[in-house]
Design a protein around this nucleic acid. Structure first.
Lengths: 135, 135
DNA sequence: CGGAATCCCAGGAGATACTG
DNA sequence: CAGTATCTCCTGGGATTCCG
């Protein structure tokens, strides 16, 4: 069994063994936790979209943040950007295989969230109530 | 009296529309994407820890961020905080059932990350190379 | 020991204006 | 249409100090 590609350059020493895998997971978690990226992935999972279509579908996103989010996703290889140099220009965004494969774990997380959101909100309200009571 | 930590920062009533579950998922995604929270959950999944133990095990975290992360997780009902008023005081953190249940989907995401990190890094390098070539 | 309070700064993110 | 550029405001987060 060869050394996995993703194990290269990772120091396994240190007090926390999880931190080794963590260094790999962190950037992914960072993108997943991004305010817009996963929403974009979910929207694109139902088919490719143009820039303006995405902007219209994602309420509240600024043009700048949509551009930056799409660039980040493209850089990570999660989607492709296809420019059609017509006038006016047309740009289509589409998930790659990698992007599609991310749907499953993200959906798992989403399902967990939906299943437990009631429990979480209750905990938050209890917490805030106690915090308020103490000033 | 203002709420100190970003406790109330989780807006559950944002303008997130098309998929109704999105507004439920967003705050959870926010916590999962947090730089330290999931690492804390993973460490605590092997048993409860004291504050200073966590600080020692999590390389690079500041005292402030550890405190804030733990408060956020406690507020969400993912862990419990137990104070033992000895001198010097002792505080233990332990996952709740809810916190333990979060491990599975987070691990799924972590596994995906580890499995595809090579692919992602390659995509990033291709992207950066092209970007550099164009200045 | 386990925080809370304060200071301070880099980076994130909105608004606006311009361009191929 | 699909961006870039710039400006500015705001927040996250490190460092430090003080407290029960």
């Amino acid at each position: 069994m060869p050394i996995p590609y993703d194990a290269r350059g990772v120091t396994l020493d240190g007090p926390c063994l999880q931190s080794a895998g963590c260094k790999n997971v962190a950037p992914v978690l960072n993108r997943v936790g991004d305010k817009w990226s996963m929403l974009i992935v979910m929207i694109l999972s139902s088919g490719p979209r143009r820039f303006s279509e995405l902007k219209r579908e994602i309420d509240g996103i600024s043009q700048r943040m949509l551009t930056l989010s799409l660039r980040g996703l493209e850089r990570d290889g999660l989607l492709t950007r296809t420019v059609t140099p017509t006038i006016p220009p047309r740009v289509d965004y589409e998930l790659t295989e990698l992007g599609i494969s991310l749907r499953a774990p993200v959906k798992a997380l989403g399902d967990w969230a939906i299943e437990h959101i009631g429990c979480i909100r209750a905990a938050q309200q209890r917490f805030d109530k106690v915090a308020d009571a103490r000033g």
